[in-house]
Nucleic acid binder design. Structure first.
Lengths: 324, 324
DNA sequence: GAACGATACTAGAACGCTCTAGTTATTATT
DNA sequence: AATAATAACTAGAGCGTTCTAGTATCGTTC
């Protein structure tokens, strides 16, 4: 299983290395006939261009690094799909890294992208501190998805508005509306503010409880909220909302009838009729698309303006929050 | 934002390139004092070693390529976690690619790994044909997870047994047991056989309906099965089982009471009390671990024996299949 | 005090590409 | 027919590392 290189193909095809390179990159400068000949020879030898060498040598080869925080949360799959729907992987390479529960892993994953010398990075769901994020943004072109940070290009949903929408929806039929928050999460502050403002605007008293990433914790914390009299719970994301549903059901109550539950993300999970979870749709797929478009723009134009895009979320009302 | 290289660090530190390289790789051959000095200089310059160059030049740097079929299916997140729990990312690099709905994308993703010259690839959930898979396995060290294929090293659950367990469980209280299959999926044949054998062994007539990846399709196909009198449905995976639950509920029946539903994968989804889905646990996390161990073994020993590991799945009985 | 062995370091080739600046062959222009 | 323009191709430097083979320097040992 000897490694075969461009040199081998060139020799076997009776042309120069450069010409083989030109053919494989699909750029102008080779006749159609010889290109086909080169490909034929290359194929018979089982030649696959060495991407590492290409990336080292090339200024033209563009690659986009993508960071996804958590593969267990379908939101990131949506965002990634959005990215891929915009990017032609023949033209631009994608390099993917993913986060890890361990705190401080974000930066390791970003470091890996820097080490790969990607031209832009699209980072979805970063939880590092603002100052650390700004440091990275200074070192490489960086587009933050889902997480806004001053001075950093980003594509986000208006979390504040989303939380307001959800809360205002609940306010119509409830008074004891609790918010199940996760401080470790990126949209934390804005969602919290949106909830709080909507509550006080309606003359209601906010009731916030903090939880973690784990569904089990969400369930336990929801139980606490229920026992302190909450008749509606707004969870920071769909996964947590699932935990809330668990708590509601195991307390012998019915979601949508006895207790209203609202999530955030509109993952396919919430869309499923069994759960029928009312949720805020941040348009994750579109977030990914916009981010990819910004990334492509940054590739094309060295000093493209650094913009921040904010999408307007939409409330998806389903039966988990029907009026009682 | 000038790119800074090992050369810059070497000059600034007053040592040779080689020594900087030695220091950063953490191998023997540099005094502790100078190493620290080099790091200090490197840090102040913002130096990050260029991984592309390293991969080109190095024979020692090992990297493992990982392919995951579908980010929307949490199974792959589990497998990936399993892989990472075994691999020290300081020692070995990971390169990740993911599949795409589009048929034939598997091979593109594997090609990308070959192009990156990874030393081994761990591929989870491949759906390509046996012959194509064998072709890849001949070109690179390849460990197939979740999908077995003769002549290819693999780590799989015993799908046949898993399906038998599920079916035999249902047989205890049901006669009209249907199987909702997905021919595009990797464990398709074995799960189907397991189901069929368990049925005929119990003197029952198999009832199979094929569906696709989409939850909506699963729901529609489940409706067909229900209307043809099925009192129990075994779905090829948890995602499809969710569709079945939808169909059951929208037909006005109750899962676990009127209709038994069983899935496959034991994703966190099925574990959630709201769904309480009986399912076959293939031990996805462990699948990933074993695959990673094989990969490391293949790295350490050039001609490590090519093994196939088969884990024994376990049935997780929950309320979706309680006896009626 | 010669020989040895570590230890700490360095020079320069090599890795497999791409890219610039040419060279040659072919076609178009006047 | 001479010249310009284009197309098809090539030689060789360069990308940023690692690796091999080596050179100093120092402390031991007999």
């Amino acid at each position: 299983m000897k490694k075969i290189t461009i040199e081998d193909v060139a020799k076997a095809a009776g042309v120069s290395r450069a010409l083989v390179s030109i053919a494989y990159r699909g750029v102008a400068g080779v006749s159609e006939a010889t290109a086909e000949h080169i490909f034929a020879v290359g194929k018979s030898l089982g030649y696959v261009p060495n991407l590492n060498a290409a990336r080292l040598a090339s200024k033209g080869l563009k690659t986009i690094g993508v960071f996804l925080q958590d593969l267990h949360n379908e939101v990131f799959a949506e965002i990634y799909d959005g990215i891929r729907s915009v990017i032609d992987e023949g033209e631009v390479q994608l390099v993917l890294t993913v986060g890890q529960a361990a705190a401080g892993h974000d930066s390791k994953a970003l470091d890996a992208l820097l080490a790969s010398r990607v031209d832009v990075v699209i980072a979805a769901g970063l939880t590092m501190s603002d100052s650390e994020l700004q440091k990275y943004a200074a070192r490489t072109k960086l587009i933050s998805v889902t997480r806004s940070c001053s001075g950093v290009a980003s594509v986000v949903a208006n979390d504040y508005l989303g939380a307001r929408l959800a809360t205002e929806h609940l306010v119509q039929h409830h008074k004891a509306i609790a918010f199940l928050a996760n401080p470790q999460t990126d949209g934390y502050r804005d969602r919290l503010r949106g909830y709080q403002d909507a509550m006080t605007d309606s003359g209601l008293k906010p009731l916030v409880r903090e939880t973690t990433y784990s569904r089990k914790d969400a369930e336990l914390d929801a139980e606490v909220l229920l026992s302190s009299g909450a008749s509606a719970i707004f969870a920071h994301n769909d996964l947590a909302a699932l935990g809330v549903l668990d708590a509601v059901i195991s307390s012998g109550r019915k979601p949508g009838l006895d207790v209203a539950v609202v999530g955030f993300d509109n993952t396919s999970l919430s869309q499923t009729p069994v759960l029928a979870l009312t949720t805020v749709d941040p348009h994750s797929h579109e977030l990914g698309q916009k981010a990819a478009e910004l990334a492509l723009a940054a590739l094309a134009d060295e000093n493209a303006p650094q913009v921040t895009i904010e999408l307007t979320p939409a409330l998806q009302v389903r039966s988990s929050s029907l009026s009682s």
